[in-house]
């Protein structure tokens, strides 16, 4: 089975969220729904001493993530309806709206929080890797949107040649689902599971 994958260059990402909005436009997503998220992970301190001068150990970086079309899709394994499928030819995940009952099991199962339940249709929705564009020989909307050119998409082998499986905070340990998400971390990046920092933009990734 072939598998498509995302590559994310953390050294290029500036956190602008153009990928998120290109995705929202392509998929007609209003407020309340986004298939891609950009996490800010921040830590350290910035302090002033008694003499008024400043010292800082602050670090901060962004990570753009959608559905990672995992090798071990825990969402699919847990779906009580068998509504989630992985395409044989592309490895891209999809939800069958007919069978989905909107129970949210996939939402809770996915350590990346990739699937969402559309509050209007009460069906699970998610990044499908822009399967229609990919079928037409194009690349996903997010990839072609990035002004800093931090995203790539292609055969998992080719993407894996560019970087490691994503394993930086606030992402989970990739061993859990084996995400098809390969990346180059920034100098500031902390390892998955780190407690050195915190989610700096909670309202933007809700």
């Amino acid at each position: 089975m072939a598998q498509l994958a995302f590559y994310f260059d953390g050294t290029r990402c500036t956190g602008c969220k153009t990928c998120v909005f290109a995705c929202k436009d392509k998929n007609n997503l209003d407020t309340g729904l986004a298939y891609r998220r950009v996490w800010e992970y921040t830590g350290g301190t910035t302090e002033k001493g008694a003499d008024g001068t400043c010292t800082t150990s602050c670090f901060s970086y962004y990570t753009s993530v959608s559905c990672n079309h995992c090798d071990k899709p825990i969402c699919m394994a847990n779906c009580p309806q068998g509504a989630i499928s992985k395409d044989d030819e592309t490895g891209l995940m999809a939800v069958d709206a007919e069978s989905c009952i909107g129970c949210g099991t996939c939402v809770n199962a996915c350590p990346y929080g990739a699937p969402k339940v559309d509050p209007e249709t009460v069906k699970a929705v998610r990044c499908d890797g822009c399967a229609d564009l990919v079928a037409a020989g194009e690349l996903p909307a997010c990839v072609m949107a990035c002004p800093a050119r931090a995203l790539k998409f292609g055969d998992a082998g080719a993407m894996a040649a560019l970087g490691e499986r994503g394993a930086v905070a606030p992402l989970p340990d990739p061993a859990e689902t084996e995400p098809n998400y390969f990346m180059t971390p920034t100098a500031d990046a902390r390892a998955a599971g780190s407690d050195e920092g915190f989610i700096g933009n909670p309202l933007e990734v809700a």
């Binding site: 153009t18 929202k24 436009d25 392509k26 209003d30 690349l139 909307a141 949107a145 002004p147």
Partner: peptide, 29 residues
């Protein structure tokens, strides 16, 4: 029904691509 921009699948950072930012991609709204 959709707002795309000008982009090419190129590894050359000097290839000039005036890709619209998040605001440009929100024009429909």
């Amino acid at each position: 029904v959709r707002v795309e921009t000008y982009a090419a699948d190129s590894d050359d950072m000097d290839d000039i691509q005036p890709r619209a930012c998040l605001r440009g991609r929100a024009y429909r709204a």
